[in-house]
Design a protein around this nucleic acid. Structure first.
Length: 282
DNA sequence: ATGCCGTGGACACCACGA
């Protein structure tokens, strides 16, 4: 199975190159973020013609997540347990939920397409919301792994966190002044890993940005950041056989500011390659 | 201190993004 995640920054603007990429790269499951539309506005036609089912969660022009899959999806969910909401001047426990999470099961693999809140600035209520959102995601994920440890689980998407200094090539993003690199955000990311997930791309590709701002020649100068990840449970991570970051998708006509991240996943390889299993017959 | 660019909708502007 080839699984991709891509913040497309408006699916209606980029449906042609999105579907072309999925077909060209033989993608079985494509998790999208920032589709920026409601389900009734989603361009299902080109996906269907290319052989993809699509599940969509979008409430308005903001955020929005979707999953395209060659195999049918089951157990579709539009929020995780305890997911907080947010609205301007409405940060309490009854704040409305945003369209930032979509879960589906495909061929026995549980996939979540996630668009983590941005945070906006270090003194903004949106950053408090971001940290609460990530904490609830950690709790929900730990419970999901505990309930079904053998079922491969992948949390994929735009995490809006730069975990390590090497992931930051943008001189305008500075520890102490900017979101995405604060100790609190990084701690939230590592706590998510502590719940039983690993970044399955980094061991294969230690370097590589996934986002370059549209402004100020960030892409030509290669002043990008790494914020899009595939985090897998042990059952998922053990079966990953390859990964790629598609920098070329930042080029050409009307690119998204993010590029796709692809993981090759072979359920048969997990047990075969597991050095921890006792070789009692050898 | 702001715009730099790009998106969608309430569209002689706005909010949002990282």
């Amino acid at each position: 199975m080839r699984l991709a995640t891509w913040n497309v920054n408006s699916i209606r603007t980029r449906v042609a190159r999105t579907v072309e990429f999925a077909v060209r790269e033989d993608i079985d499951v494509l998790a999208m973020q920032e589709i920026k539309c409601k389900p009734e506005q989603f361009p299902y036609g080109p996906f269907a013609e290319a052989g993809y089912h699509v599940e969509v969660h979008g409430l308005n022009q903001w955020n929005g997540v979707a999953i395209a899959s060659r195999e049918p999806m089951t157990d579709v969910a539009t929020s995780f347990a305890g997911m907080p909401g947010f609205a301007k001047g409405h940060e309490g426990p009854d704040a409305p939920l945003e369209a930032r999470a979509l879960g589906a099961t495909i061929g026995g693999v549980r996939v979540w397409s996630l668009y983590v809140p941005n945070g906006r600035s270090l003194d903004d209520p949106h950053l408090v919301y971001k940290l609460h959102w990530l904490d609830a995601l950690r709790t929900a994920t730990a419970a999901e792994i505990a309930a079904s440890p053998a079922r491969p689980l992948a949390l994929v998407g735009d995490f809006n966190i730069i975990p390590f200094d090497d992931d930051n090539g943008d001189p305008d993003i500075v520890v102490g002044r900017s979101t995405h690199v604060s100790p609190e955000e990084r701690a939230a990311f590592f706590a998510l890993e502590g719940a039983g997930l690993t970044d399955v791309v980094r061991p294969i590709l230690p370097q590589g940005y996934t986002y370059w701002d549209y402004q100020r020649l960030k892409f030509p100068r290669n002043e990008g950041i790494r914020i899009d990840f595939v985090l897998g449970s042990p059952a998922f991570a053990d079966a990953v056989t390859g990964a790629s970051i598609h920098r070329e998708e930042r080029k050409g006509e009307q690119p998204s500011d993010h590029v796709p991240v692809v993981v090759e996943f072979d359920p048969a390889s997990g047990a075969e390659d597991d050095d921890d299993l006792p070789m009692i017959f050898s």
